[in-house]
Amino acid sequence: MEKFAKTRYSLGCLLLALAQTALAASPAEQEVERQAQKLVRQRLADAGLDQPDIRLQLLSPRDLPAACAAPWQADAADSRAFSRMRFDLRCPANGWRGAVIVRAAVGARVAVAARGLRAGEPLREEDIAWANRPVSDPADLFGAAAPPLGLASRAAIADGQPLRRRQLQAPLLVKRGAEARIVARQDGVEVNAAGEALDNGHQGETIRVRNLSSGKVIRGRVGPGGEIEPLD
C-alpha cells in the first residue's frame, strides 16, 4: 500500500511539473507556439483534413531574453517536416534574433481501408472508413470532403491502413492487346471506330491505339468510360 501511495505521489509530481512547465512558457515561446499551431492547422485544412490533434515541443535558444519591450515576432523558416520545424524569433525592440526548433506530433481524421483491399480494386464507399491517424504529410492523405472513390490501389492495402495518394491511381480502363473504342468528336458530331490498344491506359493517360479499319496507329487520351479520344 505504501509503495502504491509513493507511485501515485510520483505521478502527481510529474503531472504538476508538466503543468507548471506549460504555464511557465515565456511570451516569446507562446508566440512561436501560436505561429506553429496556425501553420499546422492551415496545412491540414488545405489537405481537407479535420479533427486536428496537435502537440508541440519547443527547443528554445539558451540566450533567449526573458522579456521584449515590443511584441515578439516569429516566422517559419523551415516547416517541411512537422517533426522538426524551425522558426526565426526576434525582438524588434533590442534586435535580438534566434532560432526555435519545434517538434510537432500531429494527428487528424483521414480515410483508411475499411477492409483488406486487393491491388487494382477500385474503391467504393463501403471500402472507406474514417479514423484519426498520425499525419506527417497532409497532402498525401484524404479528408472527408474528398474521399478517394473510384481510385484503385497499386498494391494490396491492409484493413485500417491509411489510404495514401501515392498508393492509389485511376483504375486501369484499357488493357494492352484488348479491343478499344476510338471516339472522335467535333462540332457536335461523333464518329466511332474499332481499335486495338497497344498500351495499358488509365483515365486521362495518352496511349497508342491501332485503327482496325485503316491499320493506322494513333495516339489517344483514355476517357472515363475507356473510350479513346484521338490526339493526332
Rank of each mutant, 00 (worst) to 15 (best):
R118I: 00
Q73K: 14
L89W: 12
Q57R: 15
A76E: 15
L64T: 02
A119N: 10
V106I: 09
A81L: 13
R115G: 04
S83P: 00
S83N: 09
A67I: 08
E121A: 12
G107W: 10
F87K: 07
A99M: 13
S60I: 01
G95F: 11
P65D: 03
L117F: 05
W96A: 04
R86P: 00
N94D: 15
C91S: 08
R90T: 05
V110F: 04
G116H: 10
W96K: 03
Q73V: 15
A104W: 02
A67V: 12
W96T: 03
V106C: 07
V100F: 07
R90V: 00
G120I: 06
R80Y: 02
I101Q: 12
D88Y: 02
V100E: 08
S83Y: 00
V106Y: 06
P122Q: 10
A104F: 01
V112P: 05
V112H: 02
A70D: 09
A67T: 15
P65Y: 07
G120W: 09
A81T: 07
D63G: 05
W96F: 07
A111I: 02
S60C: 10
R118M: 08
L117W: 01
V100S: 11
A113I: 00
D75M: 11
A108P: 11
E126V: 08
A114L: 04
E121M: 10
L64R: 06
M85L: 06
L117P: 02
W72I: 11
G98W: 11
I128K: 00
L89A: 08
A108K: 10
L64H: 01
A104L: 03
F87S: 08
P61C: 09
E126S: 10
A81R: 14
A76I: 15
V112M: 05
Q57H: 12
A77D: 14
I128V: 14
A129F: 01
D88M: 07
V110I: 04
A93H: 02
D75L: 13
A76M: 15
Q73R: 15
D127F: 05
V112W: 03
M85W: 08
P92A: 07
V106M: 06
G120Y: 04
C91G: 08
G116M: 01
L64G: 03
R115D: 02
R115H: 10
A129C: 03
D127S: 03
I128C: 02
A129W: 00
V102D: 09
R84W: 03
P122L: 11
R115Y: 00
A81I: 00
A70W: 02
A81E: 13
A108S: 12
A93P: 03
S60L: 05
R86W: 09
R118L: 13
S83I: 00
A108V: 11
A119D: 09
A104D: 03
L64I: 05
E125Y: 00
A69D: 14
L89I: 11
V112I: 15
A113G: 06
E125D: 11
R86L: 14
Q57Y: 09
R118W: 05
V110A: 15
